[in-house]
């Protein structure tokens, strides 16, 4: 209720911060479909959505640009913020997506010591990685992601935006594809 216009916007919110240089993306920037996910590495639903997103990327190949933004719910997921910082620290060494995949496939092992083990397994410069973790170097970046999500109407994790509009449907492959078809 309230004014109908604002109500309609709140029901179907739009991404307020388009994909930019600060984002980690995969896929061609000219793709017809852009998908932005706001996720939390310790969230079990995001963990379930992770292979679905990979399948979607395989399915759409050159037609899809995908970006992942951090939305750690740190009060219910005690390791989520550290894990997000770890992904960024790996990203600083050019290995964001490898760490991203590892975090989602090791959701039960995200304590600080586990993060170092993951970093070692992809041959990161461990000293630099550990320093970035303890100094929380990329916490401001994670926080910025979080706030762009809040302002775009992220209401839980995972939340997907398809071509800039919040996807209110499910996040199985069919529902995401339906959401994509609806925007084309």
């Amino acid at each position: 209720m309230s004014t109908g216009l604002q109500g309609a916007t709140l029901d179907r919110p739009r991404l307020t911060t388009p994909i930019g240089p600060e984002d980690h993306t995969t896929g061609p920037s000219t793709a017809r479909v852009t998908v932005v996910e706001y996720g939390d590495y310790e969230c079990p639903f995001c963990g379930m959505a992770h292979p679905v997103v990979k399948e979607l990327l395989r399915f759409l190949e050159d037609d899809m640009l995908f970006a992942f933004r951090h939305f750690p719910l740190a009060q219910i997921h005690p390791h989520a913020l550290d894990a997000a910082i770890a992904a960024e620290a790996a990203g600083a060494q050019g290995r964001f997506w490898e760490m991203h995949d590892l975090l989602f496939t090791h959701q039960d092992r995200l304590a600080p010591r586990d993060l170092l083990v993951l970093a070692r397994s992809i041959d990161l410069d461990l000293e630099r990685f550990a320093e970035d973790l303890t100094q929380r170097t990329y916490e401001p970046k994670v926080r910025r992601d979080f706030m762009t999500g809040v302002r775009s109407g992220v209401n839980g994790t995972p939340t997907f935006f398809i071509n800039g509009v919040r996807h209110n449907g499910g996040w199985d492959l069919e529902s995401l594809l339906d959401g994509i078809r609806a925007t084309l």
Binding site: S2, Q6, L10, D11, R151
Partner: peptide, 16 residues
């Protein structure tokens, strides 16, 4: 004031 559709979490943007 705002009433969300049944089953939709309204998020926080409207509040802010």
């Amino acid at each position: 004031s705002y009433v969300a559709p049944i089953g939709v979490n309204p998020g926080a943007d409207g509040i802010l």
